[in-house]
Simulated assay, not measured.
Amino acid sequence: MLYIPCPHCGLRNETEFHYGAEAGVAYPDPNALADSDWAKYLHIRANPKGWLAERWVHFAGCGRWFNLWRNTVTHEIGPAYLPFTEQPKSPGNIGQEGQKV
């Protein structure tokens, strides 16, 4: 089971959250895109192995959206941060206590 750190409510069980999408992907003007480009925006993502910044919503708690780093291989959770704020660096070099190594 995962425990996800909501920036507003603190550490909570993963069942209280819904995954939104990859964080940092700008929303384009759908009227300015060809259908193929719009489909690419909707369905094609990087899907890397390793650390990825993601958007999550705490639907069973405060109902707010936030971003966090998650390792897509190990499901290790990194730092959470609010949207439209400075994104922390990839936690590939963060140890178990959250301190940079």
Rank of each mutant, 00 (worst) to 15 (best):
D29S: 14
A26I: 06
R55E: 12
N47P: 01
R64M: 09
V73S: 10
I44C: 10
H43I: 06
H58I: 02
D35H: 10
H75F: 12
R45F: 14
W51T: 04
N31I: 02
A39L: 11
K49C: 07
L33A: 07
V25Y: 03
N71W: 01
I44R: 10
N31R: 10
F59L: 08
V73T: 15
L68Q: 11
N71V: 07
T72C: 04
N47L: 15
F59Q: 00
P28K: 04
W69C: 03
V73Y: 05
T72Y: 04
P30R: 12
W38P: 02
W69D: 03
G50P: 03
W51L: 04
R45I: 07
W69F: 08
L42G: 01
P28F: 04
L68T: 06
I44M: 10
T74S: 15
A60T: 00
H75M: 13
H43S: 11
H43M: 07
A60Q: 14
V57Y: 02
E54R: 09
L68P: 00
W51A: 07
H75C: 12
G61D: 03
G24R: 08
K40V: 00
A60I: 00
H43G: 11
G63Q: 05
G63R: 07
W65A: 10
Y27R: 13
K40S: 13
D35L: 06
P30D: 10
A39P: 02
R70E: 04
V57E: 10
W38R: 08
A53L: 00
H58L: 00
N47M: 13
A32T: 07
A32H: 08
R70C: 09
Y27S: 13
Y41L: 09
R45G: 08
P30S: 10
A60K: 15
A46Y: 10
A32V: 02
K49N: 11
H58W: 07
N47E: 12
E76C: 01
S36G: 07
E54H: 02
P30Q: 10
N71L: 00
N31F: 11
Y27C: 06
Y27M: 11
R45P: 01
L33D: 10
A46P: 06
W69M: 05
D35K: 14
A46W: 00
A46V: 13
G50D: 06
H43C: 08
A26T: 10
N31G: 15
H58D: 12
K49Y: 06
D37C: 06
F66P: 07
G24W: 05
R64G: 01
C62Q: 06
N67E: 14
N47A: 15
D35Q: 13
L52Q: 15
W38G: 06
A46G: 00
W56F: 15
I44Q: 15
F66N: 03
D37E: 15
D37V: 05
N47C: 14
N31C: 08
V25E: 14
